[in-house]
Design a protein around this nucleic acid. Sequence first.
DNA 1: CTCCCGGCGC
DNA 2: GCGCCTGGAG
Length: 216
Amino acid sequence: MTQADTLLAMYEAMHDALGPSDWWPGDSPFEIAIGAILTQNTNWKNVERAIGNLKDHQVLTPEGLHSLPVDTLAELIRPAGYYNIKARRLRHFLQFLCEEVEYDLLALKGYTLEDLRPRILGINGIGPETADAILLYALDFPTFVVDAYTHRMMGRHGLAYEDIDYNELQSIFMDALPEDVALYNEYHALIVRVGKDWCKKKVGLCETCPLKHFLD
DNA sequence: CTCCCGGCGC
DNA sequence: GCGCCTGGAG
């Protein structure tokens, strides 16, 4: 069985067990992008509270959010944690949107992935995972999102060494899988779901895991 | 107490 | 490479 066959079979196993994920949760591409920044090392439930606050104050638009003083923004996103840092990170992203496309997020779809990804990574506060989440889930670019769950799951299955870096792990998936936005979208979603419920940090609940047949 | 769909600055 | 940022749930 080749690496590609294994990764595709793992996808099938997770999808058969869990069904479609319908990701990313969010009512608009802009909301998805904001959620990607707010969820950095943070439980999604807390992000939902923060986004709810932004909606309640009717500022979940690029111009509306950018018009807020940073302290006001921080207070609104407080439930998401790291609120002072994240308020600044959101403003860096909004500043980029303003300068690059005059707040028209979807205009970024006209860029090539190769051109746009480095620009997104150049925004202070947006690293590779957040950048790829925005590119894939908000803008439909075919880039694979790697996160802590991906590292853990691949490590425990002997498919990646422990200190593999982001780009290497991303390449394992992108070299093996067909370039398919819907597949990348659902694959990462399934990894997160398995990571939360089975492939936990301290101990994996391997006995009941959808991927148990892929252990040595 | 640990963990959470990380990233930065030192 | 390490400390820091932070609230909320379990």
